[in-house]
Amino acid sequence: MENVKIRSRVNGKDIESEVEPRKLLVHYIREDLGLTGTHVGCDTSNCGACTVLVDGKAVKSCTMLAVQANGREITTIEGLSRQGKLHPIQEAFLEKHGLQCGYCTSGMIMTSFWLLRKNRNPTEEEIRKNLSGNLCRCTGYQSIVDSITYASKLMKADETEKEGIMVEQ
């Protein structure tokens, strides 16, 4: 089959590529774009290591074809920090040791991003339920739950700070 031209916005940059129609989005991201922070863990869309945001929603990029990303906006783990400054969720995962081997981490963080966008103040039970599509074999999840709870606090503090600045202006 002939390659297909796709246009998408990846981590804020417009990108045009030619891809094989059968190519999975995760392989396009990793191999064509060189963004290797998105991982492949299971091939059966169970583990969530490949989670990215497509038009703002958490999606397992092994369940989508690259051609389906045409015209869409994709955010990967590499697109989360701004000018070298970590996103509060990334900071929280470091601070609360929400990782050991680091392999599931990108997917965990992208899922957390989506969760905290929907629900700014999730309970532990809500966090655990929302992580049902992301597997971690190292941490026993407790430090991941703690990281997400802490991230929600950091993000609230960030907003308060920003609001404060706006009031001053």
């Binding site: 990793r30 191999e31 060189g34 963004l35 290797t36 922070g37 998105t38 991982h39 492949v40 990967t76 783990i77 590499e78 989360l80 920090s81 970590l86 990334q90 900071e91 995962f93 470091l94 990782l99 680091g102 392999y103 981490t105 990108s106 963080i109």
Partner: peptide
Amino acid sequence: NERVFVEGRGHFVDDII
């Protein structure tokens, strides 16, 4: 380095191109 993992900058074997 733990920090690279939260930024997606790890060096796993499949990342070696």
